[in-house]
Each structure stands twice: as structure tokens, then as C-alpha cells.
Simulated scan of single mutants.
Amino acid sequence: MIVTNEVDPSPEQMMRFFGAPEDGPFTMVNLLKFKDRAEYEDGSDAQLSGREAYMRYGAAVQKCIADAGARSIASGMVTGLMLGEVEKLWDMVALVEYPSLEAMKNMVMSPEYQAIAIHRKAGLAGQLNIKIKNLGG
């Protein structure tokens, strides 16, 4: 299995993801890997760790999530691996439930989200975003 962490989706990836047929609520599984040091484009806050920069984003994105009608289900630091094998563990996992693809698209395209995304980019070395269809219950 090849695993490639990325920070930002390409325009093609965005079109493919958000252009998929609408199928209702889903949960986005975010597997996050932080940079050792934050890297802001303007060189500011170089004393911050990547985790600290990402936590700025994590705190601010909660309003965007709520405004989109979505909700954070769980998040936390990865502390171990019970089964399987990976070269390096992700640092953090976050689960967010969205009511629809359109709701998520509107959130990530909003000026509010774009304004805080600088902290995400400064802190992340890479991530995997995995969409899972909610089965109800």
C-alpha cells in the first residue's frame, strides 16, 4: 500500500471530490502529520511547533464547522498502533460529520475558512482525508 500525505488538494482532486453525486451525510476522517516547526509564508511565528500552528486552525475552524451545519465528532493525538504496520504514525486524528458535500464545499470556499487556513498550512506536513458514508443508526 502506498500512502502519500498531502496538505492541499489539487484543483482536479477538488473537482472530483465535490463533483461526486450527492449522497447525504458523511464523516471526514482526517489523519494529520505535523511539521516540526511552523512555516508561515511571511516568516512569522517561527518559534511555534507545527502542532501549535495547527491548533490555532483547529480552534478557529470550529465556528466554520458549526456554520456549515457540521459537527466535530472526535479528535485527539495518536498514541499507539494496535494492528498493522506503518513507517510513521500520524500525529492526530480528527473526525467531522458533514450534512452534505455542498455544506463542506461551501465551508472550505468561505472567506472565514480561507482566513484561518494559513494556520493549517503552516502546521501540517501532510494529511489524509478519508470520506466515509454514514450508515445511520
Rank of each mutant, 00 (worst) to 15 (best):
C64W: 00
K88A: 09
Q127H: 09
S100P: 12
Q127C: 03
T4I: 13
A125E: 15
E41R: 15
E112R: 01
Q114M: 12
S44C: 11
A74G: 10
L89Y: 01
N30K: 08
R51G: 00
Q13M: 10
R120N: 04
I116Y: 05
N129W: 02
G19I: 09
A20D: 11
F18R: 04
A68H: 05
A46H: 12
D67F: 04
P9T: 05
R37H: 13
L89P: 00
R56T: 13
A125G: 12
A20E: 12
A60P: 02
A103M: 10
A94Q: 11
G84E: 04
P21H: 02
E87L: 05
P9F: 13
P25L: 00
Q114N: 09
T4Q: 15
V61I: 12
A74T: 13
M28D: 01
A46F: 10
Y54D: 06
D36E: 15
A122Q: 03
F18Y: 15
P11L: 10
A60L: 14
S75G: 15
G69V: 11
C64D: 13
G69F: 07
S72C: 09
I116R: 02
T4C: 03
I130T: 12
S10N: 05
G69A: 11
A66M: 04
K133I: 09
V86P: 01
N5M: 13
I73W: 01
K121T: 14
A46L: 05
V93G: 08
A94L: 13
Q127A: 12
R16Y: 04
S75T: 15
S49G: 01
L89C: 03
I2P: 15
S72R: 13
Q62A: 03
I65P: 01
S72F: 03
K35C: 04
F34R: 06
Y57R: 05
A103V: 11
K35V: 03
V7E: 03
G43D: 09
I2H: 11
P21I: 08
P99R: 07
G58K: 04
N5P: 09
D91R: 08
M1H: 06
A20T: 11
D36G: 04
K33P: 01
L81S: 11
V3D: 07
V29G: 10
G69P: 09
G126Y: 04
V7T: 09
G50F: 07
L124K: 03
R51C: 02
A53S: 10
Q62T: 07
G69Q: 05
Y98F: 14
Y98I: 00
E41V: 13
V86M: 05
G84V: 06
P11K: 08
Q62N: 03
A125H: 08
K121C: 01
K33I: 04
A70M: 01
V29N: 15
R37G: 01
M55A: 04
I130E: 03
D36N: 10
V96K: 02
L81Q: 15
P25Y: 00
R37P: 03
I116Q: 02
